[in-house]
Nucleic acid binder design. Structure first.
Lengths: 364, 364
DNA sequence: AGGCATTGATTAAACGATTAATCAGAACCT
DNA sequence: AGGTTCTGATTAATCGTTTAATCAATGCCT
């Protein structure tokens, strides 16, 4: 049973060159004092032997694993691919790996998932909290991606501003009765988006909020939202807080024979995968996940490697009880990243017919 | 600079009880010979001190990191949440963590992503290959989730059977002219699904394949697929190889004023997140990702921990050059997992009107 | 009673990398 | 020439865990 890794280690390189392990280590890390010529020879043989440093050995000695955790309590969230991709990329640029943890939308398992990560020795973690939950002590530095209005948030998209932009867009098109579609008022993200929308609409614009959660409680999951009725009531625009619900609205309206965007407009949020391929393509707000991930990872890594932006007093400062990097909520300078309006085909000026949509509604 | 982890280690427990580290290790792992009473005391103090074993120390000694890699070359794939969730769950049940790697749909970066995982010391990896790529030597045990018809596949959904079931469903509804919608013939998964569909249709049923890739080459990404024309040509059903394309077809048809399912039917694959909430809800084939993940992880872990199902000769067998666990393509006993038909509202008997769909097409 | 197996613990050696401390030799200065 | 500094390398300790080898003590058998 050969449990040892096959690859060569530092001592093999050292032996093959007749030098000490320490010298090899220094040469490869560029830290100690090694002659340029020897560095070159060591580099060469390391490459020739196919040397891969053992993370285990390094981690044991340095106390750092080089791995970050990514906690997504609601992994079925269709945003996940975007988030995971961006976080993984930023982390790998910073030299870190990403361990995923899922709590299957169960609030109780969130703590368990976090513990699993801690037991695996992550140096820090990025948490996208399930709506309404607060992050308890994790035992390592933590970056939170939620909303700017949530206390403890590290960085996130500026959902409020995103809401404003959508509202401005719909307002400028001339909509005066807009239905806002959300799932649950317990979500900070949704509240911010809706708040932003409301704040940017002129006084004469009427809005109403439809909470999907409430309707599904009555009619079951996947039920109709009764949007045709809303059209009869004079609503000309449907602004959903996510492309998933925008899609739901779009198809429900289409099925009812209501033309989008000729008669009513539909907008979403997040520019999810399908938004650009449905007909009509969805007008939506896109988050700059790459920037968000970059800020989160940078701040997190800074805390891990430098202790973070703690009060840097003048020289002579006492480091008496500098808190160990256990459980610090990381903060970033720039905590809100603007969202970008993507105008596609699902939004346009309000249609003429507001009542009687029985026939001739379609324009091909 | 306190680089040491804060938590207590084995020696702290040992010291606090006046026993040796080895005894503590044995007690906690249940391997050596320790009296039941002492085991209990050690367990208790370990818990009291909040002991968390150091993965680094363990990994260094045992040569195993307890971490698996998950490579998804096309991370933007909307299936990702399902896959990641299932793999993470099975892995964590088996006592492993999951490190993600993304190659951003770039074929060249697939190797790089794999290397990153190997450098991080994963014990094995699960790869969902980008369509058409073969997995080169990875330097550790590898489980591949692709299609049963791909050489080297470890386990996957039975896409062919899935195709057959969809075909049987549409056939039994009475459809006789079906348009098959795929992206690219270079995908094994898509080919299997389409092959399955064709194989189960009666001789009198006509089919035609529409490759989205080809159309988009001409008209640009997100363009219309010209499905209204197809309806005029007499097609009454549209079977897409993924819910993403089914959705694209559905909305395009609806926008054109064609009623689904009254006039034509639309079916998809994979039961993606939106399938149950659009109107009409999509009829689709669901993969049993939990079972697939479980089989893949079980096989992978078996190879890692036991050397896998290699030829177990009688006793006296020489283990002269037993191959180290470097780069073994894992195989599983059960390599194809049946897909399940989910009948919703997007499929029904073919509508009466096959020509002239100018007016009165809608039935609310 | 003496020899032997069993139990319950300890000792000590790894695993692979990092790094502070040390050291030999060369160069430099007065 | 003698002392100091600098360079380029080595020595050795350390991180925390696992595990083979060892050992003392006890119980059992003939």
């Amino acid at each position: 049973m050969a449990t040892t890794r096959p690859g060569p280690n530092l001592s093999r390189i050292a032996a093959s060159l007749g030098v000490s392990v320490a010298t090899v280590s220094n040469a490869l890390s560029g830290k100690g004092r090694v002659s340029a010529e020897l560095v070159e020879r060591i580099r060469a043989t390391a490459a020739a032997l196919g040397y891969v440093p053992s993370q285990a050995g390094r981690a044991l000695r340095t106390g750092r694993s080089g791995v970050l955790g990514l906690v997504l309590p609601d992994i079925s969230n269709p945003l996940f691919p975007q988030i995971a991709q961006a976080i993984e990329y930023s982390a790998s640029v910073a030299g870190y790996g990403v361990l995923i943890a899922d709590s299957r939308a169960d609030v109780g398992m969130q703590t368990e998932a976090i513990n699993r990560l801690v037991e695996r020795g992550v140096d820090g973690m990025v948490i996208v909290p399930r709506r309404g939950t607060r992050i308890s002590d994790a035992g390592c530095p933590v970056a939170v991606i939620d909303t700017p209005s949530t206390p403890g948030n590290t960085v996130s998209a500026d959902h409020w501003q995103g809401g404003r932009e959508i509202a401005l867009h719909l307002g400028s098109l001339g909509h005066e009765k807009i239905l806002l579609i959300g799932v649950s008022p317990s979500s900070n993200v949704q509240n911010d988006r809706i708040g932003g929308i409301k704040s940017a609409l002129g006084a004469k614009v009427k809005t109403e909020i439809l909470w999907i959660e409430k309707i599904e409680e009555r009619d079951g999951p996947g039920c109709l939202l009764g949007l045709a009725d809303k059209v009869r009531q004079g609503f000309t625009a449907f602004a959903a807080v996510s492309d998933l619900h925008a899609l739901r609205a779009l198809t429900e309206l289409q099925k009812a024979g209501i033309n989008v965007p000729d008669t009513v407009s539909v907008t979403g949020f997040d520019d999810l995968i399908w938004s650009s391929v449905v007909t009509p393509a969805l007008t939506t707000m896109r988050m700059d996940m790459a920037a968000i991930a970059d800020i989160a990872i940078t701040a997190l890594v800074d805390v891990i490697e430098n202790g973070g932006p703690i009060e840097r007093g003048g020289p002579g400062e006492t480091f008496a009880d500098e808190p160990p990097p256990g459980s610090r909520l990381v903060t970033a300078e720039k905590s809100r990243v603007p969202m970008q309006l993507i105008v596609r085909q699902s939004s346009g000026p309000p249609g003429p017919a507001k009542t009687n949509l029985s026939d001739g509604e379609l324009s091909t």
